[in-house]
């Protein structure tokens, strides 16, 4: 009996503690005129927290909304589309003023976006797009163009090896089936495919992680002795590749050149140190632009349909200059 009461009491305390967080939110109404910013409620469904990039994206957005005084309801979908659909439906139920989300996958949003449209709640896409035929389902899409990132990487490679006879390339892919991986591969292949001297001798997935990049590079270095260049879909895999190259007694950046995408701090450091040769930026700092779109919607204006994130590329010299200001 005692054990039971203690167990009950403990469980009760635990339950109360878990629900005893900060005060819950107020349901917003459907706007008629511009509402004061502090009455706005925005529902945001994030893909997950699968990488440093993603977390930087979340922190930036949460920070920007806090600065603007707008309430942000945040939900983490743990990389599952069904969780995002549930979250969006829940936001519709809570009658938020704007719904923003980064779709984990391109297809399959028509049903729930139609519900949002029927409820009169505008939808903004961040970071990734949806492939709906009906583009009235969302107000604006703010994000990078992954295919373009692949192309920029390809263009640097073409320029760098303009005088070479044949170039052996190893591609470290992102997670199989993920949009950034597919698009960055596509963009790159489009550009270098024009010239026969470029050959992708091996293309394996490192799952966007350092450990994956290291393990794959290790194995490929042994079975393909003459690699000229490694193209990694993100910085982390490139950093893993660097360790594998050094362990094999070679010098990254010189014996084997490396091109990556993202421009996170660790990657930029490696670039400044000369271990990576070229980085295409993929910026997660969407917060300010998102707040701008939300205030535009609130004021009754129509934001631009497609807003491409301002991104650039970095060479080794540029990295040394830019490094002190990197936020993520």
């Amino acid at each position: 009996m005692k054990k039971r009461s203690i167990g009950l009491a403990a469980a009760g305390v635990l339950l109360l503690a878990l629900t005893g967080c900060a005060a819950g939110g107020d349901a917003g109404g459907t706007g008629e005129g511009p509402k004061p910013l502090d009455e706005l409620v925005v529902g945001f469904s994030q893909v997950g927290a699968e990488s440093g990039w993603r977390t930087a994206n979340t922190t930036d957005i949460q920070g920007a909304f806090e600065d603007a005084g707008i309430e942000l309801k945040f939900s983490d979908a743990q990389q599952k589309q069904e969780n995002q659909i549930k979250a969006i439906r829940s936001y519709i139920q809570q009658q938020v003023d704007v719904i923003a989300f980064s779709p984990v996958v391109e297809s399959g949003w028509d049903a729930v976006l139609n519900e949002a449209k029927a409820a009169g709640i505008p939808v903004v896409l961040t970071d990734r797009a949806v492939d709906s035929a009906d583009d009235s389902l969302y107000v604006s899409f703010l994000g990078s163009d992954f295919v373009e990132e692949g192309k920029k990487a390809g263009e640097w490679v073409v320029e760098e090896y303009a005088d070479a006879d044949d170039v052996k390339i190893v591609q470290l892919e992102g997670t199989t089936g993920a949009a950034p991986a597919i698009d960055r591969a596509e963009g790159f292949a489009d550009v270098i495919g024009a010239d026969d001297k470029f050959e992708i001798v091996a293309s394996q997935t490192g799952d966007f992680t350092r450990a994956g990049g290291k393990q794959v590079t290790e194995a490929l270095l042994k079975s393909n002795p003459d690699i000229d260049l490694i193209y990694a879909h993100n910085d982390d895999m490139g950093l893993g590749a660097i360790e594998a190259i050094e362990a094999a007694g070679l010098t990254p950046g010189e014996d084997i050149k490396i091109v990556t995408v993202d421009a996170v701090k660790d990657g930029m450091q490696a670039l400044a140190d000369g271990k990576i040769n070229f980085i295409v930026e993929c910026s997660p700092l969407l917060g300010e632009q998102l707040v701008e779109i939300v205030t535009q919607i609130n004021d009754g204006e129509t934001p631009e349909k497609r807003i491409v994130t301002e991104e650039t590329t970095f060479t080794q010299e540029q990295a040394v200059e830019a490094l002190p200001d990197r936020q993520y």
Partner: peptide, 20 residues
């Protein structure tokens, strides 16, 4: 399981790790 998730979405203030 569904109601747990609904509560988390309604709460809206849990970060990714606190959600887990």
């Amino acid at each position: 399981l569904g109601i747990i998730q609904t509560i988390i979405t309604f709460e809206g203030t849990l970060s990714s790790w606190w959600t887990r």
